[in-house]
Simulated assay, not measured.
Amino acid sequence: MHQKNKVIKKNEKITKKLSRVGIGSRRQIEKWIIEGRVNINDKVLLDPTIRVDEKTKIFFDGKEIPKKEQTRLWKFHKPKASLTSNYDSKGRNLIFDFLPKKIPRVISIGRLDYNTEGLILLTNDGELARKLEMPSSGFIRKYRVRVYGKIEKKKLEQLANGIIINKIKYKPINVVFERQNSSNAWIHMSLKEGKNREIRNIIKFFGWEVTRLIRIEFGPFKLGSMKEKDLREIKYSDFSKLL
């Protein structure tokens, strides 16, 4: 009888390893390693390029890193006036403060501004987060926007071909007009990139002001009827094809 070949797992960079178990993004982990927050085999690690294997004992902030669990994904309704961050020097609300203690360490897939509310995805798998937040994922981000001012539809039509504002090029954005009240209007904006404060900058360029910004869709995932601070786990079968 032929003996089966033993499967040997290749070494991987420690930044990738820690990202896969949901510690943070690779960029964050590089910073934390340089700060001396990671130990391997009882020694402080300062080199973020080192490679590790399954036998390497890794500690982050004094706690041993567990082996990778099955990838999980959640939808969270981010409230206004909260940060998509693990820390804030000003003591402002963080989205992770609203999560139940029973869920494992998670990271956000992308970010939402402090005063933006709505759908944000959370996962325990840093590699999945990195994959889905990139524009190459092709995921459409859809927002419901309340605008202060009288909407001129011709201005919004310019966005269909993209626009350059203050030397920043924004890719085409699909805009659907919902309704206009005496001083406010509601519109829907769908975009692929999600650059920093993209919608707010565009609306300001047209001479209006965003008074409420709600993300209602991220790719195939929808906010639906979720209430503020609601957390719902997504079935593995509903996202396994994305892995």
Rank of each mutant, 00 (worst) to 15 (best):
L159A: 05
E54G: 00
I234H: 12
F96E: 05
K131Y: 06
R72L: 10
K171A: 14
V44E: 05
T211P: 05
D61Q: 06
T49L: 08
L112I: 05
K155G: 11
I33D: 11
K192G: 09
I120N: 07
K154A: 09
S190K: 07
I34Y: 00
T84K: 09
E233G: 03
D88M: 09
L191V: 02
E127P: 04
Y236E: 15
N93E: 14
I202H: 14
L242T: 03
I173M: 15
R146W: 14
D47I: 00
F206R: 12
L231Y: 02
E157D: 14
T211Y: 06
P66M: 04
N39M: 14
A129T: 01
R141L: 01
V38P: 07
R130E: 14
S183E: 15
L159V: 06
S182F: 13
I163F: 04
K227I: 04
V147S: 10
Y143S: 13
N93H: 13
S225K: 15
I199N: 12
R232I: 11
I168Q: 14
L159Q: 06
K75Q: 03
S190M: 08
V44G: 05
N124D: 03
L45S: 02
E54K: 02
K171W: 02
E117C: 01
I34A: 10
I33G: 00
Q70E: 14
L213Y: 09
H188N: 14
Q180T: 14
I214W: 01
F239E: 01
P220I: 05
D61W: 00
S182R: 14
N5M: 06
K67A: 11
F177G: 08
G224Y: 02
V176H: 12
K229R: 07
I8S: 12
V21T: 07
G126R: 04
S225W: 05
K80G: 00
I29E: 11
I140W: 02
I14S: 09
I107F: 03
G126Y: 03
G110P: 06
Y87L: 10
N161F: 12
A185I: 05
L122T: 00
V176T: 14
E233V: 04
K57G: 10
R141N: 04
F76C: 11
L128Y: 03
V175K: 12
H2G: 07
R215D: 08
L213S: 08
I50W: 02
K150G: 07
K13W: 03
L83V: 04
E209F: 03
S136F: 04
R51D: 07
L223A: 06
L243H: 04
N174A: 14
I107H: 06
R197V: 03
E64V: 08
I50N: 03
S240K: 15
D47G: 08
V44S: 11
T15E: 12
I120L: 08
I58T: 03
E193F: 05
Y143F: 13
R146T: 06
N115D: 15
L119T: 06
K169R: 09
G219D: 13
